[in-house]
């Protein structure tokens, strides 16, 4: 695969994919690039900030309020779980419990705590509880590529 980058002034960022045959790799590439364009407008200390999808570690619903967690910061999001889910279809974000949506790009490991629940360990070593019911949805994300 060749990667060619060139500056074209006065035009928005454009990605062109050339392929000899449309296959799974192309689908994955399109999916990855499309997901980079998704972002959230969140609030912190009374000011609004734009958070790119890749920065999101997880989104949690706490007492009917949504919070976005990045590697180190927490932001308030004026939205609902169902709206976030609709926005993040075809991205690497996936619901892992009734109250949490996780970005699988930051997933380091899934483990079953002995005789107990499932845990997702993120690359910042934060741990999230995973409902068994949603394990197949996480698997589906990895099956997509």
């Amino acid at each position: 695969m060749q990667i060619i980058t060139r500056q074209v002034k006065g035009k928005p960022l454009t990605v062109t994919i050339e392929y000899p045959e449309y296959n799974e790799t192309v689908t994955t590439l399109v999916h990855k690039i499309s997901s980079m364009d998704v972002g959230f407008s969140a609030n912190t200390d009374g000011r609004q900030v734009k958070i790119g999808l890749s920065e999101v570690y997880y989104i949690e619903n706490v007492e009917r309020k949504l919070f976005i967690y990045t590697a180190k910061e927490v932001y308030r999001l004026d939205s609902s779980m169902s709206e976030v889910e609709a926005m993040t279809i075809d991205t690497d974000l996936v619901r892992i419990s009734r109250t949490c949506i996780m970005n699988t790009d930051h997933l380091k490991e899934i483990r079953q705590v002995k005789n107990s629940h499932l845990e997702a360990v993120l690359d910042n070593d934060e741990m999230l509880v995973v409902s068994r019911k949603y394990l197949k949805d996480i698997k589906r994300i990895f099956q997509k590529g």
Partner: peptide, 16 residues
């Protein structure tokens, strides 16, 4: 279910 959960976890971790 317990076999399936173990298999799914192994699959996900292998992909990671």
């Amino acid at each position: 279910d317990s076999i399936k959960v173990k298999k799914d976890i192994a699959y996900i971790n292998a992909r990671i």
